[in-house]
């Protein structure tokens, strides 16, 4: 089965495996001065997986991607991409990766045509017909200088350069950052098309949850340099619930008990009160949590699967987390 595993050491549910893994990160830590950018990160990305790396600005998404590209050397832990250390063997690793940087970073003095000609020289598997087709679809004029392109066209040109050598692994750092809805759709569709047709492995970072929901089959939630949650999207959805209870009584005491780590049946991640009702975002067995609430004299009004937004806010502590 194709799957991704991404856990922090604290709640490691599975050991990283190296079988058909494209990316294996073990115990990766990184500090910039006093600031911890990554802390004991484990991540396994297997072939064909589309993993959405979600987190706030400064959560550590770009730092993690830079380690995978070999731009940062692991201070602690290890990073392997295609079984190789990207910092020690950049050519072997980067030759199999298509990378789209958040700031794109293309040289403005090149024309689009020159960018394609230059990039093609690095990749034996460069597909000139595919590049031309993508340029055509994206309305990119080969004679136009990169610096004169609009932000959307700039992103499209960068995407063509990243996709046309048919990379085994696509690393996309905030691919739709700052783009209008039309360009965003184009970019995402091109990526989805690549994934659907060729079964590429993709790791993309984003803080747009709808984008992650649409594109990825696996998700890793990163915050403060730690991976808080990782797994298949469906599996994550099935594990998280929204329970609405009437406020009052012993609710506060029960919620505190259920929010404590190690609670048996399930765990309350966040609670928010409005109009005399309290909405709890819970992880685990929904029925068991509801039973415990009822046992404490609370009235459960409704329960349903939590949305990705709610899970994100609850996990990152931005939802009045308990």
């Amino acid at each position: 089965m194709i799957h991704a595993v991404a856990t922090s050491h604290a709640n490691a549910g599975a050991e990283p495996r190296a079988g058909d893994s494209v990316v294996v990160v073990e115990g990766l830590s990184r500090r910039f001065g006093d600031k911890t950018a990554l802390h004991e990160v484990d991540l396994v990305l297997e072939r064909g997986v589309v993993l959405g790396l979600v987190g706030k600005n400064g959560a550590g998404k770009t730092t993690l991607i830079q380690h995978l590209l070999g731009l940062l050397r692991a201070q602690r832990g290890c990073v392997r991409v295609f079984g190789l250390d990207p910092a020690a063997e950049p050519a072997a690793v980067l030759g199999r990766i298509g990378y789209l940087a958040e700031d794109r970073g293309l040289p403005g003095w090149m024309t689009v045509g020159e960018l394609m000609r230059y990039t093609a020289a690095f990749y034996p598997r460069w597909d000139a017909d595919y590049a031309t087709r993508l340029c055509d679809d994206f309305q990119l004029d080969p004679r136009q200088k990169i610096r004169t392109l609009s932000r959307g066209q700039h992103a499209r040109a960068a995407l063509v350069a990243a996709l046309a050598h048919r990379p085994e692994l696509l690393l996309l750092d905030e691919p739709s950052s700052g783009l209008d809805p039309v360009v965003r759709r184009d970019v995402l569709e091109a990526i989805l098309h690549t994934v659907a047709e060729e079964g590429r492995t993709v790791l993309f970072s984003s803080h747009l949850l709808d984008e992650v929901e649409r594109m990825s089959d696996h998700l890793a939630l990163i915050d403060g340099g730690r991976i808080l949650l990782a797994g298949g999207l469906e599996e994550i959805r099935e594990r998280h619930w929204r329970i609405t209870v009437r406020a009052g009584g012993a609710l506060e005491v029960v919620v505190k008990r259920l929010a404590a780590p190690g609670a048996s049946a399930g765990r309350v991640l966040a609670a928010r009160e409005a109009l005399g009702e309290q909405t709890l975002i819970c992880e685990g067995d929904c029925d068991a949590i509801a039973a415990e609430l009822r046992q404490a004299g609370c009235e459960c009004l409704a329960h349903s699967p939590a949305s990705l937004d709610e899970i994100f806010f609850a996990r990152t502590g931005n939802d009045g987390g308990t």
């Binding site: 045509g113 000609r117 020289a121 690095f122 055509d136 004679r143």
Partner: peptide, 23 residues
């Protein structure tokens, strides 16, 4: 039309090293 008419006379860069030197 602009794309079709784009000059493609520049020969391909034969190796990565040549491409980097060109750049």
């Amino acid at each position: 039309s602009a794309i079709a008419a784009a000059p493609t006379t520049a020969p391909p860069l034969r190796s990565a090293m040549r491409a980097q030197l060109w750049m």
